[in-house]
Nucleic acid binder design. Sequence first.
DNA 1: CCCCCCCC
Length: 627
Amino acid sequence: MTSQRLTTGALLRYIRGNTTEKANLQVVGIKPIESKTDDPSGSAKRYRLMLSDGKSTFSSCMLGTQMNKLIETNTLKENSIIRIDRVMVNSIDKQNGRVMLMLYEIEVIESDFERIGDPVALPLTDIINSGPNANRLEAATNNPPAASAAAPTTNVIRQGAKALPTLDDRKKPNGDNRAAAKGANVIDKERIINIDTLNPYMNKWTIKARISNKCPIRTYENARGPGKLFNCDLVDKSGEIRATGFNAECDRLYSMLEIGEVYYITKASLKAANRQYNTTNSDYEMTFNHDTIIEACDVGEGENIPQVQYNFISISEIANRAANSVCDVIGVVKSTSDMQTIVSKASQKEFSKRDILLVDEKASISTTLWGQQAEEFDGSSHPVIAFKGIKIGDFNGRTLSVTNSTLTRQDPTETERTVELRVWFDNEGKLMDLPDLSKAGEAGNRPTVMKTLSQVIADGIGLGDKPDYVSVKAVVTLIKKDSAVYMMCPEGKCGKKIVDENNGTYRCEKCNKTYNSFKWAYMISAEISDTTGAQWVTIFRNEAETLLGVSAEEFGNHKLNQAESIVDEIISKAINHELIFKLRAKAEQYNDERKIRFTCVSITEIDWPAHGRRLLNEINQMEPVQN
DNA sequence: CCCCCCCC
C-alpha cells in the first residue's frame, strides 16, 4: 500500500468556488439518502459522502449517481482515498447560503486505507461565507449564486440572485387582495421562480410562463387501459420546460391553456426530461397533477415573458444526430414539391404530404409537411421557417418530418436568424449549390464517425474493398503549393490534365483534341495533423476552395503571373486552422504496394457553440439535490 | 402514465 498524501485545505477551496484543482481526499463517511420526493422511477438513489482533506471534513458531498456502483461493488468505502476530477458547488439553501459539493467525476486511488490524521468538521462560518468565486461557477450551472444569497437570513432581493424574482416581477398591484379573497389554496404570485431553477426536489414553487406550443389531445391504449394526454411547452426568460397533462388533468387544463398566453403555474410533478422527445433546454419535464393550479396572468402582466425559445442546430449538424430524435431547425424554403397523397401502412388511411427543401448557409435537407399544413403551404416567396421539435428521419440520408408537437413559425421575429438567413438567401444562398443531407449518395453528406489520425490507421480505415468514410479534427500543416493546381481540359466534364503545347494551344489526350484555352483545377496534396499523428490527403475543387478561400481560377492565375507572395499568403492563411475534415479512404494498388488514398470530401468549421453545448450538457447531467 | 405522426 503506497502512502497517499491528502490535499490539505482543498475542501475549503472547493466550497469557496475554486473547483479546478484535482484534490486527493479521504472518504470518512458514506450515507445513502432516502428519497423524500415522489420520484416515480425509484431509481434516484444517491449517496452523500463525508470527505476529509486530512485537517477538515465536510459532509455535504453528493456523489453523482453514475458512480453509485463504486459503492455497491465495495470499491468505494469508508477510508478510501479518492481523487476529485470534477466537482461543483451547489447552493442548497438560499436563506442561509449553505452549499454542497457535487461530485461529478472521481477516481478511487486507494480502496482500502486507514484513517489519516484527526480531521475536524469545517466551521459553519467557513461553509456559508463562500467567496465571490462561487458566483461565477454557479452561473455556469444555472443555479442560484451561493455567495449572493449567503450573508443575512432575510428576504432581501439581491442583484444577481437569479433564482429570486426581479422587482418588476413582484409588482402586482392587486395580487395581495385577490390572494386573500381566495383563501389558502391559491397561487403565491410574490414568489415566482425561474423555469431553469425548477427541479424534482423542490416542493413549493410558482412559475410565470407563456405557452409557446400546445399539441392536440391524443388518446392511447396500454396495459393499464385507455388514456389521453396533451403536451405543451412553457417558456419564461430563463428557459423552457415541456409539460404533460393526462386524463383528468387533460380534461381540466387543456381548454384553459392557450398558445401565446401567460399563466401562473404551481404544484406539478417534475422528472428527468426524455431527450428523445424533448428539445427544450430544461433537464426536467413537468406533469400536471391533481394539485396543479394554473391561473391566467392579468392582461399586460406577461409582456416581459418571451414568446418562444429555440435551440437551433444547423442543418449540417442534423447529419450527426440520431434518427427519430427531435431538434429545432431554421432555414429558408428553397423549393416546394407538389402535394402528394400517401396511404399509411399501419392505418390504411390517406394522408396529404408536401416536401420542402429547407436550406441554411451550409446545407439543405428535405422536410415533410403533413395534412392541412401541407395542403395550405405556399413556399413561392421562399420564406424563412423555424421548426421547434421537428423529427429527424433517415430515409436517403437525413430528412425532417413535422409531427403534431412541432411548432412551425414562418418568418419568426423572435430570432435574428430570420433576418440573417433572409439576407444571405437573397444575396447568394438562392444560387448556391449546397450539400443536400437527403441525398445519401453524396459523399460529403454521409454521417461519419470522428476519429483521431492514429485511430484511423489503427482501425484499418480504408483497408476494405469499399471506401470508408471518417471525420477527423485536424489542422493543415503542409500544402504542396507548386502542384496545388493543374491545367484542366476546358471541355465540360472531361476533367483531364491537358498538355500545354506552348504555342497558345492545349492538348487533351482523353478528348483527343486541341483547344485554345484551358481551366485551372485544384488537386492539392496536403498534410493534416492532430495531436496523435499526421496524414497526407488529397483535396479537390470544392473543398480546396473552402480551405484556401479563393477559386482555382484565381489561384492558377496568381501562379501563372508568378505572384509568389500572394500565393504564399493564401497558403499561409490556410495553415494551422483547426477544421473538421471528412475523408474518403480507399486502398489502391501501386505496383506491388497497397496504399490507402485519403480524399477530402468535406471541410467544415468546428461548430463551437454546439461543441460547447455538448460539454455543458455533460456537466449538467447531474441533477441538483436538496437535502 | 405518452413518445403514434404515416410514403418512398
